[in-house]
């Protein structure tokens, strides 16, 4: 078993109105050092796979087909083997 921790983020150059609202709010609260904010999604998937390579290939396919929209979003992930199951 593996745990995939997947990040979906808007591509650079795609306007992110939520992030702009957050950046403005941080600035109003005195965080004047804030230069930029981007908002994304975090998705956790627990999956069965024989090897880390096999798991990575399946997670990449999930990203392409569903988890991210290739027009506006990038996705990346890390894999962790889960203990306790063969």
């Amino acid at each position: 078993m593996f745990k995939a921790e997947i990040k979906v983020t808007l591509k650079p150059g795609v306007l992110d109105p939520q992030a702009k609202a957050i950046a403005d709010s941080l600035s109003v609260q005195g965080f004047s050092e804030v230069d930029a904010v981007r908002v994304g999604k975090y998705i956790e998937v627990i999956l069965e796979a024989d090897t880390a390579e096999a798991a990575a290939s399946r997670v990449a396919e999930m990203g392409r087909r569903l988890l991210a929209n290739p027009v506006t979003e990038n996705f990346s992930f890390t894999l962790t083997p889960l203990e306790g199951e063969a």
Binding site: L10, V14, L15, P17, Q18, A21, N69, V71, T72
Partner: peptide, 17 residues
């Protein structure tokens, strides 16, 4: 139709939120 790739482009949340 956009998500299915039958039409080009994608939707974002409204600029005003």
């Amino acid at each position: 139709l956009l998500e299915a790739g039958l039409l080009p482009g994608a939707m974002l949340v409204n600029e005003s939120l």
